[in-house]
């Protein structure tokens, strides 16, 4: 254990004394997570509410697709986004390949499945009488959507936190689309990868990893508290019989 301990002792002061590189990477990561989660929420929520409330043909298939999209490997998303952004690609004229803006696009696509799959599940978990009553009382679509979102707010919040968490810890798509350029479009995860594999700078990797760990622990704690609140509302993978 001597080695791990000595590396850890070198790493902690880097955080403590406010190493500029570490803080800039942390800031980039938080910005990426905020922007991609916000964009995914704005794009995904209308679709998610439609999926959760809708009574139309093909809803089941769409929902199966939304659930499956959570399993999309981030590397695959990264490769296809990069191909679109390269000069000569569909969005090549934007010239945002290997920039943070390109990474925003990739991460928004990766965050969308969380909104589109988890929010409908939260809405469908509401007491069925509630929405029927609102419908019977003549609520319009927008009113119904607002009611559903308000009542399912814990599930919606959990979906947003899950999307945020995926952005904080993403590596594959960030490295492919952004090119993992030091001090420019690196996130905490991709910086750890670079510090270990390119520079063998273990104290820096540990310091960055610790910052990432703290952020993730805060998010996990928030999710756990949400799970335990409101009479045991739970968000987790789960297998159970459909009633």
């Amino acid at each position: 254990m001597g080695f791990l301990w000595s590396q850890l002792r070198l790493a902690v002061p880097l955080i403590y004394h406010g190493d500029r590189y570490i803080w800039s990477v942390t800031w980039v990561t938080l910005r990426l997570a905020l922007i991609s989660t916000a964009a995914a929420s704005v794009i995904g929520l209308p679709f998610a509410v439609t999926l959760g409330l809708g009574r139309f043909r093909g809803r089941r298939v769409l929902q199966a697709l939304a659930n499956a999209s959570m399993a999309l490997p981030s590397v695959v998303v990264g490769v296809f986004v990069l191909i679109l952004l390269l000069p000569g690609g569909v969005l090549g004229s934007l010239r945002i390949e290997f920039t943070l803006r390109g990474v925003y696009i990739a991460q928004t696509l990766l965050a969308l499945p969380f909104i589109v799959a988890l929010v409908p599940a939260a809405i469908q978990g509401l007491a069925p009488g509630l929405l029927q009553q609102a419908r019977a009382l003549g609520a319009g679509r927008v009113q119904l959507a607002a009611l559903a979102l308000r009542e399912a707010r814990i599930g919606v919040l959990a979906a947003v936190i899950a999307a945020f968490g995926s952005a904080i810890s993403e590596v594959g798509a960030v490295v492919i689309v952004g090119g993992n350029i030091e001090g420019h479009d690196q996130t905490l995860g991709s910086a750890v990868l670079q510090q270990v594999t390119d520079y063998a700078n273990y104290p820096a990797a540990i310091a960055i990893g610790l910052v990432l760990l703290v952020l993730i622990l805060i998010l996990i704690a928030a999710l756990t508290v949400l799970q335990q609140r409101a009479g045991g509302l739970g968000l987790r993978f789960r297998t159970g019989a459909v009633s």
Binding site: N67, M70, A117, L118, A121, A122, Q124, G125, L126, A152, I154, G155, A158, A159, A162, G231, G232, L233, G234, L235, R236, F237, R238, T239, G240, A241, V242
Partner: peptide
């Protein structure tokens, strides 16, 4: 029987 993330009671 299904498996998915789900938020519900």
């Amino acid at each position: 029987v299904r498996m998915r993330f789900r938020a519900g009671p």
